[in-house]
């Protein structure tokens, strides 16, 4: 059986800085995998290697059996099947929410305008902001912008979604709306790889939790194992800091 994502002995160096030092990890279709860990542990870099926003230094990444690290692979074609949501939303500020969700459908998938608009409106409704279709990103709250960004990725009909700390740039009261959308997606069976600091979300929604530190995977298991009953000292220290920051 082909895995949705298969990562083999992945290394990534930025100059002398070894950010990833041999990662092995798989994600099955329909699974939700949350990656947790301290900042600088390489979680975002790992995610960005999956759709080749970062070029791995060594190792292999396969998405649905296609080796994205192979120089002969049409990376644009692979990326169409991988939705990505960024910490900073990265909406196109010169376009309305609707245009943001339409543009790649038109330019990449070559859908005509009518079709693209139909899909775009359906996806904006899906994330609960159909009424904001005509607004520009600057007119939307962070939570609304992030949901437009999710709709933009979904409109391409991806097989899997990557979330890079999707709620870290949000005001606390707006986090819930975005997590609710992600939860709904998970329930609908979307394959998701999520880098997050939201332990509650990881615990409730994830099928698996991966704890990273220092460029390696320290623990990988069910949420109850990794968050509920961590085996490694490093995991315990991290969780204590995240769950009880005052103590």
């Amino acid at each position: 059986m082909t895995h949705a994502i298969e990562i083999r002995d992945l290394h990534k160096h930025f100059g002398k800085n070894e950010v990833l030092r041999g990662i092995d990890c798989t994600v099955e279709a329909g699974q939700v995998v949350c990656v947790i860990g301290p900042s600088g542990s390489g979680k975002s870099t790992l995610l960005r290697c999956v759709n080749l926003l970062e070029e791995p230094t060594r190792g292999k990444v396969l998405v649905e059996g296609v080796e994205v690290t192979d120089p002969d692979v049409d990376i644009d074609a692979v990326r169409r099947r991988i939705g990505m949501v960024f910490q900073q939303f990265n909406l196109f500020p010169h376009m309305t929410a609707l245009q943001n969700v339409m543009i790649a459908q038109q330019r990449v998938l070559k859908r005509d305008k009518k079709e693209a608009e139909k899909v775009a409106r359906a996806n904006l409704d899906r994330v609960g902001i159909g009424d904001k279709a005509g607004s520009y990103p600057a007119q939307l709250s962070g939570g609304q912008q992030q949901r437009v960004a999710i709709a933009r990725a979904l409109a391409m009909g991806p097989d899997l979604m990557l979330f890079d700390e999707p709620t870290s740039a949000l005001d606390p009261e707006l986090v819930g709306d975005v997590l609710a959308v992600m939860r709904k997606l998970a329930e609908e069976g979307m394959t998701m790889l999520v880098v997050t600091h939201e332990m509650g979300f990881a615990r409730e929604v994830a099928d698996r939790v991966v704890f990273m530190d220092g460029g390696v995977i320290v623990e990988d298991g069910s949420p109850d194992q990794v968050i509920g009953d961590p085996q490694q000292e490093r995991t315990r220290t991290f969780l204590k800091r995240v769950l009880h920051p005052e103590g």
């Binding site: 926003l53 990505m84 990265n90 196109f92 330019r107 391409m156």
Partner: peptide
């Protein structure tokens, strides 16, 4: 990055 991740060249 957003544009490329949507599959744009």
């Amino acid at each position: 990055e957003a544009a490329r991740s949507l599959g744009m060249s």
